[in-house]
Computed example of a mutant assay.
Amino acid sequence: MTESTGHRSAVDTPWDAPVAELPDHVTPRWCAQTLTTAAGNAIVRSHLEPRSEDRRYRLAWERLWRMISFDPRWRRMTRDMLIGDRDRARRALDAGGLSAKDATRVRTYLHATSRALERIERESAAPLAWASASYAEVGPRTRETIEALALTVDDYLSGQATREDLRAVLAGLDLNPAQRDVPEQARERARAHRRPHAR
């Protein structure tokens, strides 16, 4: 923006806000403590698009957007913020009076917010996005496997799937214990999840 508007807040002109650093390790705990706060919003706005090709950064960036997309509250509040930013950017362009440099910066931010909103929409439909943000740390193939098992078990419990359906899913995933030499330690870990205290 122009010099006269340089003092305005990031909420007024988010495209002018200083860059806030993204931590190397984006975890569910960090997200719970940071996202939807002023500091978290600044980080999200600073990283609508990747700022580096560094592998560690890219992993953190991808995890940030997956975490946002996998949690209903973070997803809703981030979407609301970005929609508000997008509307402000459009109004700033429609009002005119911007220098060519400022207009370019606003258009770039407008494009980035639109892409971020599309990303949230896409990621929120990914395997296990409905389950918990903690699954954002798991690879997509593993999430697909867990999702297939969880939903088939749920269908079985609600009477929409048969024992044969369960066996077919296990076979299709190449995870049929009846056809494997399963160690007792593995069965004990599974039993632990059936106990009342198991989470």
Rank of each mutant, 00 (worst) to 15 (best):
D80Y: 06
P72K: 12
D71P: 14
D54S: 10
R79E: 15
R86Y: 11
R79G: 03
M81H: 07
R63A: 00
E53F: 06
W74L: 02
R75T: 02
L82I: 00
R56Q: 13
S69P: 14
W61Y: 15
S69T: 09
R56N: 09
F70M: 02
R86T: 08
I83R: 15
R79D: 05
R55C: 06
R86K: 12
M81F: 05
W74N: 01
W74E: 02
D85P: 08
W61N: 05
D80N: 07
L64F: 12
M81Y: 05
R55Y: 08
I68L: 13
S69W: 09
D80I: 00
D85A: 05
P72S: 10
M77E: 14
Y57A: 00
R75A: 02
W65Y: 06
D87C: 07
G84A: 15
R79I: 06
R63Y: 04
R86W: 13
A60V: 03
R73C: 04
E53H: 13
L64Y: 10
R76Q: 10
I83G: 07
R86M: 13
D71R: 11
R66D: 04
D71N: 15
R66M: 06
D71H: 15
L82T: 00
W74Y: 07
M67Y: 08
Y57H: 10
G84R: 15
R79K: 09
M77G: 01
R63Q: 14
L64K: 11
T78A: 00
I83H: 12
L59R: 15
D71K: 08
W61F: 15
E53W: 05
I83T: 13
T78F: 02
R66W: 05
R79Q: 12
R58M: 11
R76S: 02
E62V: 04
E53V: 09
W65C: 02
D54F: 04
W61C: 03
D71Y: 12
M67E: 12
A60M: 06
L82K: 03
Y57M: 03
M81K: 06
M81E: 09
R76Y: 07
P72F: 07
E53C: 06
R63E: 01
I68Q: 07
A60P: 10
I68F: 08
W61R: 01
L59Y: 11
W74H: 11
